[in-house]
């Protein structure tokens, strides 16, 4: 079940989105729980109290606390990378700040149902990819981590570190085995000792990638062109698609 938040100061937009989503859910046999907020304040209050949404539909031009501020709060103050944000706006021009919040999509009013269904397809794909589990063994025990919590794998010698937002775990293994286990989905070799989760990349440069923990990992010289062409051809620009 997906938890979906909708925030717009215009009531009829909220109910329109809610209605369209309810229709799409019925058609695609999904169970979605929707909650509507008519102001930025009420949404941020819920977020601060620890309420989690899988998807947030956010109006950009909200009075007082606007969509950009809510997005920043979610990503930077609360450190939430998992919630997928979809911006809604009456305009087709966007400030650069909006892009740093890494929204999945931008929708323009008046909303179209087909377009919304397309966005939800993508959101579902991304969530499904992120909630898969990575399993590894350390001694006799095996451990499980949801993919979306992993920023990247780093190898040094025979050890592999799993770097997450808050912690780091180690086990013995080979990066190529880890990659094979992940099935080529969601991860990118930028360096012989770094396998990064591109859902956690906040910025691509030709020579490096910056991760959500603000660390810039180098892309090795002989991989730069490959990484670049891979990004171009798989249209991910971050997290959109995988080779399927």
């Amino acid at each position: 079940m997906l938890r979906i938040g909708i925030c717009d100061d215009e009531r009829h937009i909220c109910s329109q989105v809610e209605q369209m989503l309810a229709d799409i859910a019925e058609e695609t046999r999904q169970e979605w729980e929707m909650q509507v907020f008519s102001s930025g304040e009420s949404l941020t209050e819920h977020l601060r109290e620890g309420k989690f949404f899988d998807v947030l539909f956010l109006d950009i031009e909200l009075p007082r606390i606007n969509g950009i501020e809510i997005g920043k709060m979610l990503r930077y103050d609360l450190g939430n990378e998992a919630t997928k944000i979809v911006y809604i706006s009456g305009k087709e021009s966007y400030a650069m700040e909006l892009f740093t919040i890494r929204p999945v999509d931008f929708l323009i009013k008046p909303l179209e149902r087909a377009r919304l269904a397309e966005t939800m397809d993508r959101v579902r794909y991304l969530i499904e990819r992120g909630t898969r589990i990575f399993e590894y063994k350390n001694g006799y025990y095996s451990y499980k981590i949801p993919i979306q919590e992993i920023l990247y794998f780093e190898s040094s010698g025979k050890k592999i570190s799993i770097v997450m937002e808050q912690e780091k775990r180690q086990f013995y293994g080979k990066l190529s085995d880890v990659e094979a286990q992940l099935g080529g989905r969601g991860f990118l070799f930028v360096h012989k000792s770094y396998l990064v989760n591109y859902a956690h990349v906040i910025e691509y440069q030709y020579e490096s990638v910056t991760m959500t923990n603000r660390l810039a990992l180098p892309i090795s010289q002989n991989r730069r062109k490959d990484v670049r062409n891979w990004i171009m051809n798989n249209n991910i620009g971050g997290d959109e698609y995988d080779i399927r």
């Binding site: 890494r102 691509y204 440069q205 249209n235 620009g237 959109e240």
Partner: peptide, 9 residues
């Protein structure tokens, strides 16, 4: 034409 994570496609 779209912009994502510092890349223009």
């Amino acid at each position: 034409i779209f912009f994502k994570r510092n890349l223009l496609h």
